[in-house]
Design a protein around this nucleic acid. Structure first.
Length: 966
RNA sequence: GCGUGGGUAGCCAAGCCUGGCCAACGGCGCGAGGUUUAGGACCUCGUCCCGCAGGGGUUCCCAGGUUCGAAUCCUGGCCCACGCACCA
């Protein structure tokens, strides 16, 4: 009677079709009915989606499915994010035939002949949103696809929505124009996005401090990233062979190199180049060094980077290995000293000045590390670079300024750096200049510089008033897990103004300035509101072709989201009818606010927090989000899943290999909270098999009886505990716990029941199958649906009511009795193990009546909180049946008082539940005998005439029968 | 450095908020037995140390402390992971 094995590859698509045809997940407003609205941030669609997104998605979906089963009208939509730079860059790289980009496509399984098409960014947008949709469907996603869409101008109604959003934000003063530093190509005259760089992907601008050294008629200007080291300056370096320029910068005469003069001009300074001055002519003169306030000599060096800074560098041999080496090289080079006419005694007298004390370092870290690494001269560029980094890292975090730093003595480097810089600037002794943090080269092969643009638009997240409300909004939200709350509050405080528009990239143009495109973290903050009306605007297409939805204006959104204006007039303007508008308004009011938004923890510090900020800016408090859920980084086989690590697992590959239900269960089991969820392939294997056997069990009749069994109440009690545990865990989004309570524990209970009972009761088995199927349905909807129909239930299991725990069926007495039996069995086994006796017969002695009576007395005293040894003895001696055992009473009482006096009330009730020990053991005799493999006898310890050669019977305690093994 | 989370038996991982039913749930791995088998899967028992009677000993990163009692509370220390942005 072998049932056909369960085949997910056949069953899963079948139900996916059935659900879609029946529109089970299609959600429309139903005023009066409780609703639940869950979303996951739309994924960026430059690839097939991997399980990182899958995990974030499924966790939200598990809860959404659970809510559907607990009577909610559930909305879970899913859109696709196309805004930004990566698709453009990738398409361009394909068009140019870049091997790495082509390899990425091949690895995704794109056929060779399809690859050229990906040279067009629009092709990516044709392929990946659709593919993601297919992948999610194959996972069994419970999504209302009628509300799906893509972002950017390619989808006009969404484009109009974002424009509306930005106009409103600007009206309310949340958008502001300011200056901003960008990586810039001087030849193209344009910013260089990541995808336009030959070198330097991800590199950001950094700010140098420019130190001004007064020299007769001008300032020599040196650039440094370490302004706190000004107190250790011993000299200045120039390259004797470089022609520097004299320039008027903001009215001051400066000497810098030619490139620096150009850069300063791009950074908001007025620069006029007046003439040249050779480095050689500067060497040997003395200048006043800011900070140390001493005259220091200008000395020659051949290793000054002329593409960075000003080509002039100050020398701090105590903390800069380069400088220490250069000083020593010069000190050893008498010819050089003569050639430049330098004063030998001055050169020889240069000594590093200790200025920073840091952990694990002596007073002169540069000297120390050069010795340790065996660096011999300034020619040793590679080692010097490593040395510099090592010193800087520890110095920055742990360093403290010494007495040499005058007013800054005792200040931590991290803080001194900014203070010294600011003070020098305030005193007119310094200025600033931006450079890319590392070398950046434009596609046109030109090295990049930093330009300060003065018309950058910002969202004012740095605004204290806005932050205050954001904190407030957050405090009203439910967070899963609660532990992320601090992280969110911290992020709100830490956030500064955000450059919300770019020169390039796909997206929506800034409505009041179409040179700018709204960047991708800014066009995605309140679109959950758009979902509520998207079904009408999109017409079922990712790129809307609904005629009237191509012409949406602000009045339309003002009405739908704010209820402002006259629907009839607006409808006329837009080209639809008032009823449609009113219906959309109703959808919005019904679904909003959002109940849950769920994502990986990496979005906490940007997207999720932006979402809060923008909601409070755009909507009244009743429409602010109600709940956020966060999960850690997914790892597979102990390694983080990320594209850079190369261990991505695409959803499609996972489903193909394991089937949707197994993947879903693997995700549910991967772990909750902020810990990184781990996808465990061993678990996948075992759960796949368990699904198969569960299916076989559930769909086969099995041998049952109409007769009640002694274990029925026990099993139903545990079943209800499972239900209760599963519900609690589901509500808390603790899916691993839910799976345990709702599946593993229930299964274990059944196995015990089936072992204890010769033939299971029919109704109990049916109850088990039905309950188990329902509890499992949010995780493994396909197999559950198949079972549901095979056992003759109607409707879809995915929309059936989730089981309710029946308090009346929870039976502590039945549980206590069975625990007693199991403990007894464990004791017998323990004895057999220790004694290594092959048992011929086991005799169990249940405690004598007086002991049971005494322990009941103790229990009742304990319940009143009055259990002490003396109280117990006093009361016991008043009972004739106990007084008769006056001699045995004290030692017995001592143990029992000890045990009961510290218990909590609820535990006490359980520990003192009456168990008919003798009858229970007697009834379980056949079971015990088959477990132990010999005959078992049950007696009472005070039963006369029972043979007890070892005198075991008197050891019997209530709940702890004496055991005699032969 | 700042912020957050965490360190539990061979591994993964509950418990910690609300101290005592905790030698500490569960899973994997490992060992023994059963059943079936081509392989596998499944079931039962065991898996810190000692113990020929259900017991004892020593444990929950380290060191102190509070308490009749601590994996759980407090103090200090060590270690690990993630984030530190204008980018999806």
């Amino acid at each position: 009677m072998a049932a056909p094995p369960y085949d997910p590859m056949v069953v899963e698509p079948k139900w996916q079709r059935a659900w879609e045809e029946a529109g089970v997940y299609r959600a429309r407003a139903a005023p009066g009915r409780p609703k639940f609205y869950a979303t996951v941030p739309y994924p960026y669609v430059n690839s097939y989606q991997h399980l990182g997104f899958g995990v974030a998605f499924l966790r939200a979906e598990f809860l959404a499915r659970y809510k559907r089963m607990t009577g909610h009208n559930v909305l879970m939509p899913q859109a696709f994010h196309c805004t930004g730079l990566p698709i453009l860059g990738a398409a361009r790289r394909v068009a140019e035939g870049e091997p790495r980009q082509l390899a990425i496509l091949r690895e995704m399984g794109v056929p060779e002949e399809e690859i050229p098409k990906f040279g067009d960014p629009l092709h990516w947008i044709d392929v990946f949103p659709q593919a993601t949709m297919d992948d999610l469907k194959s996972l069994g996603a419970a999504v209302d696809w009628s509300r799906s869409f893509i972002t950017t101008h390619l989808n006009p109604p969404y484009d109009a929505f974002v424009k509306w959003q930005f106009r409103r934000l600007r009206d309310k003063g949340y958008v502001e124009i300011g200056t901003h530093e960008v990586i810039w190509c001087p030849r193209d005259g344009a910013p260089i996005g990541d995808h336009d760089r030959l070198e330097g992907e991800g590199v950001q601008p950094v700010e140098f401090t420019l130190l001004k050294f007064p020299l007769a008629d001008a300032f020599l200007v040196a650039a440094t990233l370490r302004p706190e080291t000004v107190y250790g300056q011993t000299n200045l370096w120039v390259d004797p062979d470089v022609a520097y320029v004299r320039a008027r910068v903001d009215g001051e005469p400066w000497i810098v190199n030619r490139l620096a003069a150009m850069k300063l001009g791009e950074q908001g300074h007025r620069v006029e180049v007046l003439g040249e001055v050779r480095g050689r002519d500067l060497v040997g003169r003395d200048v006043l060094a800011p900070g140390v306030e001493q005259m220091v000599p200008i000395l020659p060096s051949k290793f000054l980077e002329q593409n960075r800074g000003t080509g002039i560098v100050t020398s701090v041999p105590s903390d800069a290995p380069d400088d220490w080496m250069a000083v020593q090289d010069l000190q050893r080079d008498a010819a050089q000293i003569r050639a430049f006419g330098l004063d030998a005694a001055t050169i020889a007298g240069i000594r590093p000045i200790p200025i920073i004390r840091s952990e694990g370092w002596g007073p002169l870290p540069a000297v120390e590390i050069c010795e340790r690494m065996g660096i011999a001269s300034q020619m040793d560029r590679e080692k010097l670079q490593a040395a510099k980094e090592e010193i800087y890292r520890t110095g920055y975090y742990t360093g403290v300024m010494t007495e040499a730093a005058g007013p800054y003595v005792g200040v931590r480097v991290e803080e001194a750096k900014d203070r010294i810089k600011a003070d020098l600037i305030a005193a007119g002794r310094a200025s600033t200049m931006w450079e890319p943090a590392e070398e950046v080269v434009c596609r046109c092969a030109t090295p990049a510089i930093v330009k300060i643009v003065d018309n950058q638009w910002f969202l004012r997240y740095g605004d204290p008033g806005w932050k205050d409300v954001a904190h407030e909004a957050l405090d009203r939200m439910g967070l899963y897990p609660e532990a992320v709350r601090k992280q969110f509050h911290y992020t709100i405080d830490w956030l500064r103004d955000w450059a919300c528009a770019h020169h390039q990239g796909l997206g929506t143009k800034l409505p009041w300035d179409n040179h700018w495109v709204i960047e991708s973290l800014s066009d995605s903050t309140v679109y959950m509101a758009y979902y509520t009306i998207a079904h009408a605007l999109q017409g079922g297409k990712l790129r809307s072709d609904v005629p009237w939805a191509q012409r949406l204006n602000d009045a339309f959104f003002d009405y739908v989201f704010y209820g402002k204006g006259d629907p009839a007039a607006i409808a006329r303007e837009v080209g639809t009818d008032a009823a449609t508008l009113e219906a959309l308004r109703m959808e919005f009011l019904y679904w909003y606010p959002l109940d849950l938004r769920h994502t990986g923890k990496d979005l906490v510090q940007n997207h999720m927090t932006f979402c809060v900020f923008n909601h409070i800016a755009m909507f009244p408090p009743e429409h602010w989000p109600r709940g956020f859920g966060v999960i850690g980084h997914v790892s597979l086989g102990g390694e983080k899943m990320s594209k850079s690590k190369g261990n991505v697992w695409f959803i499609r590959a996972a489903v193909e290999e394991w089937g949707a239900d197994t993947v879903r269960l693997m995700v549910a089991n991967a772990g909750d909270g902020l810990d990184d969820p781990r996808l465990d392939l061993q678990f996948a294997e075992s759960i796949r098999d368990r699904i198969g056997s569960w299916f076989a069990f559930a769909t086969s009749p099995g041998e049952t009886t109409e007769q009640g069994t002694p274990l029925d109440r026990w099993f139903l009690s545990l079943l209800n505990r499972s239900v209760r545990g599963a519900r609690t865990a589901m509500e808390a989004m603790e899916f691993r716990a839910a799976l345990r309570a709702g599946f593993f524990e229930l299964q274990t209970a059944w196995v015990w029941y089936a072992t204890r009972v010769p033939v299971p009761n029919h109704a109990v088995r049916e109850r088990f199958v039905e309950t188990q199927t329902l509890l499992l349905a949010p995780f493994a909807p396909h197999v559950c649906e198949e079972i549901w129909h095979r056992i003759g239930r109607s409707g879809f299991v995915v929309a059936a009511p989730y089981p309710e725990p029946q308090a009346s069926e929870i039976d502590p007495a039945a549980e206590a009795a069975e625990s007693f039996l199991r403990a007894t069995l464990a004791d017998i086994r323990e004895i057999l193990k220790v004694t290594r006796i092959a048992p011929k017969r086991v005799t169990l002695f249940v405690a004598a009546a007086w002991k049971r009576e005494a322990s009941a007395l103790a229990a009742s005293l304990a319940k009143d909180g009055a259990l002490t040894m003396s109280a117990f003895m006093e009361r016991a001696m008043a009972v004739p049946a106990l007084k008769a055992h006056a001699g045995d009473l004290p030692p017995f009482g001592k143990g029992i008082v000890e045990d009961l006096s510290h218990r909590k009330a609820e535990d006490l009730a359980e520990a003192t539940t009456h168990i008919p020990e003798r009858e229970y053991l007697e009834a379980a005799r056949p079971f015990l005998e088959s477990e132990i493999g010999c005959t078992v006898r049950v007696h009472a310890a005070d039963e006369p005439g029972v043979e007890d050669p070892k005198g075991k019977a008197r050891l019997a305690m209530p709940r702890r029968p004496a055991i005699y093994v032969e």
